[in-house]
Amino acid sequence: MTYTPRAVAAMLGIAPTTLRTWDQRYGLGPSLRSEGGHRRYEDSDVELLRRMVALTAQGVAPAAAAELARRPRAHRLPRPVSPLTDDMARDARRGFLASAKRLDEPMMLDLAGKLVTEHGVVAAWNSVFLPCLGDIGEMIARIGSGVEVEHVASAAVLQALRTVPRSSRMGVLAALLSTAPEEQHVLPLEALGASLSEQDCLWRSLGARVPSRALCDAVVLLRPAVTLVWAHRADLAAGVPLEELNARSDTLLAVAGPGWAGLSLPDFVRRPATLTAAIELVLAHSDV
């Protein structure tokens, strides 16, 4: 694929004059010219310009941004983690649930923090946190009480996830994470964000109950490589403006959570079924 300057300017949300200036001043121009001498941009040219847009949006001066955009990307190596065996996971679940039922926050924080540090976010989430939170939810439904247990347990997991250092490098935002309008469950998005941080990926979360207009505006402003929207019920998922998001940005749209199960989705929307699949989707479409 090749693109005209006007098409590239529209894709990146910048003025054609800006594109021309960056070509003349910093050499961020097209690789090809047509037989008639017209400029034509390749995908690699567009990606270089996308990094330029991201860097200048972060406040980097254009000359410095152009130099950074051209540099080969050096990333933090993923932190080595030890395997979480079935026996270890079973003992961790037992300890975490017992601490949760006692509202023993210090013990839960200690257990959750060690799991993330020693075994990584994905293993801790899939093998311990998610099953434990599911068991607590079933307990509440069965006996009609215990919401306080769920709240303290969720807070402990959240704090552990937020101990993972965020990437400090500059570049295109790999993922924008958002809930559907009126959706209040954000913990799965925090798990995805922490997992992306382990991969030195740039991401941002809009938190809970994100209005449709706010989500659209954020996507246009931030231009993430991937936008992922979480919903745990179908009625909440129905409020996400997928068509408008697709029309206003070239971000790859993805959805996650049980709220999307069984819904008919447009062809341009991806639906990763697991945390690992969501991570792989973002990594495949980012500059990592």
Rank of each mutant, 00 (worst) to 15 (best):
R40S: 04
I279N: 14
E150R: 06
L283C: 15
T4H: 05
Q24G: 08
S205C: 14
R213F: 09
M11E: 15
D23M: 03
A92L: 00
V147H: 15
G113H: 08
K114R: 15
W260P: 11
A9E: 09
Q199L: 15
A208L: 04
G239L: 12
F129E: 04
E105F: 05
G262N: 10
T4S: 15
L192Q: 06
L189S: 05
A74F: 14
A191L: 06
S205L: 03
A160R: 00
A92N: 00
R102C: 10
P181R: 01
S99M: 03
L32H: 15
R20P: 12
A74S: 15
A175D: 10
L19Q: 01
R51V: 01
V60L: 11
C132Q: 03
A175M: 04
T56V: 11
A15P: 10
A284I: 00
L109H: 08
T21R: 03
P62F: 01
A9T: 03
Q184P: 05
E138K: 13
T56I: 09
D43Q: 14
V240L: 04
H232T: 13
L130P: 09
H151Y: 02
M88P: 02
E148V: 12
S99H: 04
D135P: 01
T21E: 09
L228F: 04
T276W: 01
A57K: 05
D43M: 07
A284V: 00
P78D: 06
V269C: 08
L173Y: 01
